[in-house]
Each structure stands twice: as structure tokens, then as C-alpha cells.
């Protein structure tokens, strides 16, 4: 009989039995509702083994590629290792600070090198662990395999009184070691539909995943329109403006719109004035068939998600990681 391992438990499944049924029969708690592969309540993640495509119908592409599946319509016909969706299944590797670079007055680029393998996609997030055990999550803005390890770039915005961000800004130096865990999150580019239009909206250091996703898409030869709207209260809160403008010159299908709530006197006309989401949805009234990525303040993300959906984007095409938010709750 095939075995199913979840956490510390290992059970045997019976012929014709679903993964959900096998786990429940063994008193292993899995939340569930419809038992028909529809409501997604019983979603699990497969770490070892295969699941049939029918067990992933309706899940987002970014979740499917990570092995998420609906346990109520998946039979275990071979040995499997599975995990609850929120379970800590991440690997941990040591990383060394290569460089700290100023992006704007309160945001810096933290560049890390890992010597061990750390597979991730730009737009996902990782957990950064300080030697005393404090852990905070940051979105991956840059990712590249480098020898046996990886090179990773994070955007760290200083938050007044934020224990981790103040330490990163004031204490952490090139050559220092940290530990990172992960990656996690479903906000990243999945190739396969190169002609699709992509909309990215973010505020503050919510630019980090969007920058990563846009560059990843362009690097992989995405041909459809990619529109990135980055918002800030005033222009000093924007960053990477030069690099993004250059990217737009290099790729005709990439458009970059820096937006500020308050334009200062004499500021260039290309700086759009208004709330970033209002500007974006004003430009793009019909989002049918679009892929949408949202990052930033939770209120902005919630409002933009609704608006994107009502403008025609399919629910499974709207990506916003609840953790990929540049809020004090995450990084304070």
C-alpha cells in the first residue's frame, strides 16, 4: 500500500481512497468542506511524489507549480510526502551580505550570497533570521543562481522603531552572516503565455517583488504588454526610477509609471499625480485576460484586488501575497 507522510506521521492509504480520506481515517486533522475538489478548503502541498492534474484544477498557476493540490480528489497511488499549506517546510541556508546600497532616503538594497542551494523566484519572499533569532520576511527583488549558491537582492525600508530594519540599516555590514529560510509565496512570474498583458501595482518597498517579476518576465522573453505603476506620497519615496526608465527604453512592451500623491512644484510632467491604483485603473479600464500583481499597503491591495476583478481580470489571475506587504506588521 502506498504511504503518505505528513509532518511526523506516516500512514498507509487504501486502494481508491483519497489523500484527505486517508488522513482523516487516521485522525490527522485537515480542514475540508465540499469533498468534491471545488472549495479548496482541503488544499495540501506535495513535497515528494506526484499528483494528478485533476487534483489541481482551479488552483492558481503559481500554486500548481509549487505542488499544491486538492486532497479530496487526489488518490495516493504511490508514496507521497505532503504538508499543510502553511507548514514550515522551507529550507534554511547561510547567507553573506555582499553589499548594502542606498535606493532612497529610507530604503536600501541588501544583496546576499548563499553558498548552499536556495531555489526561488523573484517576487516570492524569504525569512531573514538575525543571529539572536529575530525573524522578518522580505520580498525577493533580485534572484540569480550563482555557482552552487544564489545571489539575492532585497529592498529594506527603514521603519521607525523597527527592530529588524534598524539593525539592517545601522548595524549589518558587508561580510556579515545571516540565515535565510524559504522561499514562500505565490506572487511570481510563470512562463507559458508570452502574449498575455501584465499589470503590476505597488507602493513603497512593495516595488521589490514587482521589480523582480517584471524583470523576470522580460528576461524570459515575455512579449505582451507589461505595465508597472509604483506609487509614493511624494517623489523622494520612489526609487529605481532611473533603472526602470532605462528598462522601458530597452523593452518597448514595458511601461513604467511613477506616481505620487502630491507632485512638488517644478517636478517633471511624467510623474503622474494621484493615488497609484486610481491612475492605473483609469488607464486600463478593461482587464479581461490580464495577469495582475499587487503589492503594498493592505488597504491598497484589498481595494485594487476588487477593482481589478470588477474590471474583468479573473480571480485566478490576480496575485497578491498577504505577506508581501511593506507594513510595520511585517517588518517592525
Amino acid at each position: 500500500m502506498p504511504s503518505i507522510r505528513i509532518g511526523e506521521s506516516e500512514i498507509e492509504s487504501q486502494p481508491g481512497e483519497t489523500v484527505l480520506a486517508a488522513l482523516l481515517r487516521n485522525d490527522i486533522e485537515v480542514p475540508y468542506s465540499c469533498r468534491s475538489g471545488v472549495c479548496q478548503t482541503c488544499t495540501l502541498r506535495v513535497l515528494e511524489g506526484q499528483v494528478a492534474p485533476k487534483a489541481q484544477v482551479g488552483l492558481k498557476e503559481t500554486l500548481r507549480t509549487q505542488g499544491y493540490f486538492l486532497s479530496c480528489v487526489c488518490e495516493a497511488d504511490q508514496d507521497m510526502v505532503v504538508a499543510h499549506p502553511g507548514a514550515d517546510v522551507v529550507n534554511r541556508v547561510a547567507a553573506v551580505v555582499a553589499e548594502k546600497r542606498v535606493l532612497n532616503s529610507d530604503t536600501l538594497l541588501l544583496e546576499l550570497y548563499t553558498t548552499g542551494q536556495f531555489d526561488a523566484a523573484p517576487g516570492q519572499f524569504l525569512h531573514l533570521r538575525r543571529p539572536d533569532g529575530l525573524i522578518r520576511s522580505y520580498s525577493i527583488a533580485d534572484y540569480a543562481a550563482s555557482g552552487a549558491g544564489s545571489r539575492i537582492g532585497l529592498h529594506v525600508r527603514r521603519l521607525p522603531g523597527g527592530a529588524m530594519t534598524e539593525w539592517i540599516h545601522d548595524v549589518l555590514a558587508a561580510g556579515d552572516s545571516v540565515e535565510i529560510g524559504g522561499p514562500a509565496g505565490a506572487c511570481f512570474y510563470v512562463p507559458g503565455r508570452p502574449g498575455q498583458s501584465i499589470l503590476l501595482i505597488g507602493t513603497g518597498s512593495g516595488l521589490a517583488p514587482l521589480w523582480g517579476i517584471a524583470r523576470d518576465a522580460l528576461m524570459r522573453g515575455h512579449e505582451g504588454q507589461i505595465a508597472l505603476y509604483h506609487g509614493s506620497w511624494t517623489s523622494p519615496g520612489l526609487y529605481l526610477t532611473h533603472e526602470l526608465s532605462e528598462l522601458a527604453e530597452l523593452h518597448p512592451n514595458f511601461k513604467y509609471y511613477p506616481c505620487v500623491d502630491c507632485r512638488r512644484e517644478g517636478e517633471a510632467e511624467h510623474l503622474r499625480e494621484g493615488r497609484v491604483d486610481k491612475i492605473a485603473f483609469g488607464d486600463l479600464a478593461d482587464l479581461k485576460g490580464w495577469r495582475v500583481f499587487l503589492c503594498g499597503h493592505p488597504d491598497l491591495v484589498a481595494a485594487a484586488r476588487r477593482r481589478a476583478f470588477l474590471s474583468g481580470a479573473s480571480m485566478t489571475e490576480i496575485h497578491a501575497d498577504p505577506f508581501v506587504l511593506s507594513t510595520p506588521a511585517k517588518s517592525a
Binding site: 468542506s33 465540499c34 469533498r35 468534491s36 472549495c39 479548496q40 478548503t41 476588487r306 480571480m315
Partner: peptide
Amino acid sequence: DMERQAAKQKAFLTMVFGGPNNYTGLD
């Protein structure tokens, strides 16, 4: 939560379309 809500609505539509469902009146 819009994503959760959409999943529930899918379950509801599956039910009224006569697809597989295990919902009870109590649910």
C-alpha cells in the same frame, strides 16, 4: 477574503449545476 469567497461560490455553482457536491442543509 475574495479568494476564499470565490472558492465558496464555485462550490455553490457546482451544486446548482448538478455537479459533485456533499453539502448538507446544516452546512
